[in-house]
């Protein structure tokens, strides 16, 4: 069982984000980290490969620069190798461009299953995974809360409005996993040390034969403007006390909810 996991290296989410004043692209200049959402997919892949008794997990990522620290985190968790598509041409890519690049990168390796998060924490378009599936001609199951391989087929519990559907699909396939599908492991010291020597292949847009087809210059979208949203009026903030509960009850009464 060989599994590709798409991972995204994002600006540290604890740092206040900003936009480039010229391009309105999200500034990705600082240190990049592995998107927390992706740790669930990496863990799921490691467990499925373990259960299958063989195979390996490959991380696939793209970035406008050669940043690999996020990929190293995934390798430290136990993935065998990484593929990074790194090219200045990729700056300002939209979701479809990203999907074209990742799909082409995935095709350079052998896989039975592609796993991604449902969406990234920074861009959160949520369309890239299924665009990848369509480009690769794969079936896809999004919003998985449980994933198993049974008799060589994918078996998934897929989140729905009402509860969940049990969905099966032949392999190869693509699945997007929600948080809580598995508990991601923390990289061990040994894992962190061995991650440093694991192979990460770096490819350019030209290597994938996609020159002139992807990236910001070929993105179908333009930013028109960015403005400050209307701010909410500041409210009443009080410290906890017996009186505070009384005031809150009064506030709820005023709203007629009690």
């Amino acid at each position: 069982m060989n599994i590709c996991v798409c991972v995204k290296q994002i600006p540290d989410p604890t740092v206040t984000p900003s936009l480039d004043p010229n391009t309105s692209n999200l500034v990705r200049a600082g240190k990049l980290v592995l998107d927390d959402s992706d740790t669930f997919g990496v863990e799921m892949a490691l467990q499925l490969v373990d259960a299958a008794g063989g195979g390996e997990v490959t991380l696939v990522s793209m970035a406008p620069n050669s940043e690999v620290s996020g990929i190293r985190t995934g390798l430290a968790m136990g993935a065998a190798k990484g593929i990074l598509v790194s090219d200045p041409e990729l700056a300002g890519s939209d979701a479809l461009s990203t999907a074209k690049v990742l799909a082409a990168a995935i095709k350079t390796t052998e896989f039975d299953l592609v796993i991604t998060a449902t969406e990234s924490t920074d861009g959160y378009t949520g369309t890239t995974p299924v665009q990848i599936a369509e480009l690769l001609g794969l079936p896809s199951v999004s919003f998985a809360k449980k994933v198993e391989i049974v008799d060589g087929a994918l078996k998934v519990e897929r989140q729905t409005e009402a509860g969940f559907d049990e969905v099966t699909s032949p392999l190869p396939a693509l699945v997007t996993v929600t948080a809580g599908v598995v508990e991601p492991r923390y990289p061990s010291f040994k894992g962190i040390m061995s991650a440093k020597s694991k192979p990460v292949t770096t490819l350019t847009v030209a290597d994938l034969g996609l020159s002139g087809q992807v990236g910001g210059a070929n993105s179908g979208q333009q930013v028109v403007s960015v403005r400050k949203a209307e701010a909410r009026q500041a409210g009443t903030i009080i410290e906890d006390s017996d009186d505070a509960i009384g005031q809150l009850v009064g506030y709820l009464e005023q709203l007629k909810v009690i």
Partner: peptide, 20 residues
């Protein structure tokens, strides 16, 4: 769940972007 899947599939099929 299904709206996003459908839009993503259509976008890739037509090779046109999608704004989400």
């Amino acid at each position: 769940y299904d709206g996003r899947d459908s839009a993503a599939r259509l976008s890739a099929r037509l090779s046109v972007g999608v704004i989400t």
